[in-house]
Write a protein that binds this DNA or RNA. Structure first.
Length: 894
DNA sequence: ATGGTAGGGACGTACT
DNA sequence: AGTACGTCCCTAC
């Protein structure tokens, strides 16, 4: 139906049933208001139930379903099913009726950050939904006006769910899928994909007079396996009356699959990407429906493939007579081609119907392979699935070889069924010619398989396997326009905060803008500064910091959710009454665990968890939450992150600096760490500061025991690394990497005199400590802008005449004067310098032995984090006033 | 009861 | 302290 049709008044009717809250009454005037509305509508649109909840006459309740029943089934019977809110108990109540769960459908058909009704109404239907917190409901029962309002919200929710169903064309699509496969519509609506393929194959094999495999329940399988084992033990070779291949049933249970689903066989080939930013045309070619095509190309079927008894991958069939599977797929493809041809001349509602039909045909063809590899499928055929993926890998590899070796083109990436070719051309029409040539050459080799041009990228940033972005050139009526495509990057993932994603997306758009390197860097820096400022001023909405994660299992599946903090939270929310129906697939706020490490070993970094003795108390069955404790928990990730930024700092110490109760951040760190002065830097870091005039870092050489100054220009500390020392032992406490900073007194060759980052880091720490306890009283430095001379007052050597003041010893090159600074700022400056060197040393990227993070940026980052933490504290405090804290781990990376 | 594998990345714990 | 390895989540295909 068109929307205009079902939205017509009178097409749909509704009613609301209302009951009192426990121990409550209906507000004054409500009864009359409801009666008025009913008489106005001509029917009972509002009816209220003054008696106990759910007291339905025993002859009535089963009318919900089409099966007449006298005993109410247990509604919670069975697991609180995967993803769905309806348990088998509930399903049995509505037997014979179709249940369309728009939450499940939306999750299947759409890509959204959240699948809440509010979010979907906004993005799909462009409608605002009012959210009512459960805690507000009692208040709304207090007067007639607000109660009617509440009723309206409830009715709106029902309406929105239904509108969503129409919007997503759930019914037409599932009906088509069901018609194609010949299964039950109700099952398709539940999302039983494997069953659709099962029925499709059942019908096809039955029509050809094959005997189909038996269907085993999982219980039967277990029984059979144990029985078989017993038989083996007794060396009893008696024939089992339920005979099935040993390899197929036993192996999944025997091997790793017992411990939750490792892959059972190998899948698609992913090429190692040639990373980089490409700015000339890139061709994206991919095979159309690779796996269905392979089945047809090589005639892969139960009826054709000869399986080897040892469970190895079978050989390709030599049988030329088409098997059933290829025939079935061929049929689906042909039907789809026909539907698509009708589509060209169709109009109106017919277009929509045909389009859905072709979608359904494609979905069916594509899901066949997956079910061959599905261990619980009636048609489970691991050898076939393996053979198909093996062919896929070989086809991709041979295509790459052809393109590279015979056509002399550069393949920069490819995944399962696609290759990307860097043309190196500025001219799109020439690039297209190349694409045409490749397509021609590749397609020559195959009968059914077909490679095609899937897109042309103008620019592309290739970062890692499955992580890239590109400017895609598309055409509308012949005129080109550009779209940015993002694959696998942070901003397409749901588990990053909005702030981080927006910022990342902006940076990406700049990088792909084609502007000069300087402009791009400038503009990215500007945006980072802007965000930093916004965060400091509290202009970033709290929601942008929030991270949410989904549950893959129902909360009940985790009895003591030690390693699933979000699940633990979900359980608590449920118990506290705020969330009534939390189930797998729900998105829950991510809050860190209350558990502390087991204490038996040190953990990576200093991210120990806080624990408070009064964590949760129960009083008359109600949960009492220590707000301060939760506050500490909320901030703890932030604090830990900061600590990780500046090694050697304890959460407690940092909490102290941020004005928090440090006892709630107590970790097992040693006293020495707690006294580390680097924490003091946090309050003083200023990105405007320069370190000119700071006391240089003194490094002692491990070989000759002599000392020398670390270069005062910090970028020169950021040297590349000369490689691993030969005796570097994995697992030892020494670093595997070395700066090419070299002791000037030791010979250049050999191992002597090389300085490791760890050594520098230790020197920095020691010197910073010494500095802070002894020498901070006075610093003398030259006031000449270009001069770097600094000295401590304690060992001052002065050149010049005392009447004119103290002259810089760099005389005669320098005419500056030495000024004595006693300010605290200088202390911070010096410490900042140490910190700077320290962090520089820590910024070694072990992947390609290059230092990636310029020191200035690191400082900006630390400062931003400190500011963020401080403002977060306040925001969290505000939030706590309402009860549950919803702010999550902050992972904004500047 | 309710298709597949490959892979990145965060995080936690055990081990050396 | 550093590493190895497993779990979880989400994505690409």
């Amino acid at each position: 139906m068109l929307a205009s049709e079902w939205k017509r008044t009178g097409m749909l009717s509704h009613f609301t049933v209302l009951r009192k809250l426990d121990g409550g009454i209906f507000p004054m005037g409500f009864t009359k208001e409801a009666a008025d509305r009913n008489s106005k509508a001509g029917s009972n649109v509002i009816s209220f139930e003054s008696r106990q909840a759910c007291r339905v006459p025993s002859n009535m309740w089963s009318k919900l379903g089409r099966l007449k029943r006298s005993v109410m089934p247990k509604l919670t019977k069975g697991n609180t099913t995967f993803g769905s809110g309806a348990s088998p108990g509930i399903m049995s109540c509505i037997a014979g009726r179709l249940l369309c769960d728009t939450f499940l459908c939306a999750r299947d058909l759409l890509k959204e950050v959240s699948y809440s009704l509010t979010q979907l109404a906004k993005t799909q239907l462009n409608k605002d939904r009012k959210e009512i917190a459960p805690r507000d409901i009692p208040r709304m029962f207090q007067n007639s006006g607000s109660l009617l309002e509440l009723i309206e919200y409830g009715e709106t929710d029902a309406w929105l769910s239904m509108e969503l169903m129409f919007h997503l064309s759930v019914l037409p699509l599932t009906r088509q899928l069901t018609n194609i496969s010949g299964n039950l519509w109700g099952k398709t609506l539940q999302g039983a994909r494997a069953q659709r393929v099962e029925y499709l194959l059942l019908h096809a094999f039955h029509a050809k007079k094959f005997i189909v495999p038996d269907k085993f329940s999982s219980q039967l399988k277990v029984l059979k396996v144990t029985k078989r084992k017993l038989n083996h033990d007794a060396e009893d070779k008696a024939i089992d009356d339920l005979d099935v291949d040993d390899a197929e049933i036993e192996s999944p249970h025997n091997e790793q699959e017992k411990t939750r689903k490792g892959p059972a066989y190998s899948g698609g080939l992913v090429l190692e990407p040639k990373r980089g930013l490409y700015d000339k045309y890139i061709l994206l070619l991919d095979f159309n429906s690779l796996y269905p095509s392979i089945i047809q190309e090589y005639n892969i079927c139960f009826t054709t493939v000869q399986r080897s008894p040892d469970g190895s991958v079978p050989r390709l069939p030599s049988n030329k007579r088409p098997g059933l599977l290829p025939e079935l797929l061929k049929n689906l493809v042909e039907r789809r081609r026909m539907v698509k041809s009708w589509l060209k001349t169709a109009s109106g509602l017919k277009v929509q119907q045909l389009d859905i039909q072709q979608q359904a045909l494609k979905l069916t063809a594509n899901s066949m392979y997956g079910c061959l590899g599905f261990s619980n499928s009636r048609f489970y055929a691991k050898p076939l699935a393996e053979l198909i993926t093996l062919q896929g890998r070989e086809i991709l590899q041979s295509t790459v070889d052809l393109v590279q070796n015979n056509l002399n083109l550069e393949v920069i990436y490819g995944d399962t069924d696609s290759i990307m070719i860097y043309s190196g051309l500025d001219d799109i029409s020439k690039a297209k010619v190349i694409a045409g040539k490749v397509i021609q050459e590749v397609n020559k080799k195959y009968r059914c398989l077909e490679i095609d041009l899937d897109g042309i990228y103008k620019r592309m940033l290739l970062l890692k396997k499955k992580k890239y972005a590109a400017v895609k050139v598309q055409f509308k009526d012949g005129t080109p326009y550009e779209v940015i495509e993002r694959k696998g990057l942070d901003m397409v993932r749901r588990d990053w905060s909005l702030l981080s994603k927006e910022l990342g997306d902006f940076c990406l758009s700049q990088i792909l803008s084609g502007g000069s390197c300087e402009d791009v860097v400038e503009s990215i820096h500007n945006s980072l500064r802007k965000v930093q400022e916004d965060m400091r001023n509290g202009q970033v909405p709290l929601e942008k910091y929030v991270i949410t994660k989904s549950l893959t299992k129902p909360p009940e599946a985790y009895p003591d959710a030690k390693s699933q903090p979000h699940v633990e939270v979900a359980l608590r929310l449920k118990k506290s009454g705020y969330v009534t129906g939390c189930s797998a697939g729900d998105t829950v706020p991510y809050i860190i665990s209350c558990e502390q490490g087991n204490g038996s070993s040190s953990s990576t970094g200093i991210a120990q968890r806080a624990r408070h003795p009064d964590e949760l108390k129960t009083d008359n069955g109600k949960w009492i939450i220590d707000i301060e404790y939760y506050l500490a928990q909320q901030i703890h990730p932030v604090v830990s992150r900061l600590c990780a930024s500046i090694q050697g700092t304890s959460p407690a110490r940092l909490a102290d600096c941020l004005g928090l109760d440090s006892s709630k951040f107590q970790s097992k760190s040693s006293e020495a760490v707690n006294n580390d002065p680097s924490i003091l830097l946090l309050c003083a870091v200023d990105d405007e500061e320069r370190y000119r005039g700071c006391e240089p870092l003194v490094v002692s050489c491990p070989s000759c025991s002599g000392t020398f100054d670390c270069p005062p220009v910090f970028s020169s500390v950021c040297l590349s690394i000369s490689g691993k020392p030969t005796d570097a032992q994995a697992g030892g406490s020494t670093s595997n990497f070395w700066c090419n900073l070299h002791c000037p007194k030791c010979p250049e060759e050999g191992e002597g005199g090389r300085i490791s980052p760890v050594l520098i880091a230790n020197q920095v720490k020691r010197q910073a400590e010494r500095f802070i306890t002894t020498y901070y009283k006075g610093l003398m430095m030259c006031d000449d802008e270009t001069c770097m001379y600094t000295t401590r007052s304690l060992n001052l050597r002065v050149i010049g005449d005392s009447e004119r003041g103290t002259v810089c010893p760099n005389y005669p090159r320098c005419n500056g004067r030495l000024a004595i600074k006693y300010t605290e700022a200088d202390l911070y400056k010096q410490l900042t310098y140490f910190c700077h060197v320290f962090d520089t040393v820590r910024c070694l990227d072990k992947v390609d032995n290059k230092i990636r993070i310029p020191v200035e940026k690191e400082l900006v980052r630390i400062r931003a984090l400190v500011e963020l933490a401080a403002s977060t504290v306040q925001k969290l405090r505000d939030r706590c006033a309402y009860g549950w804290v919803q702010l999550k781990d902050l992972t904004v990376t500047i």
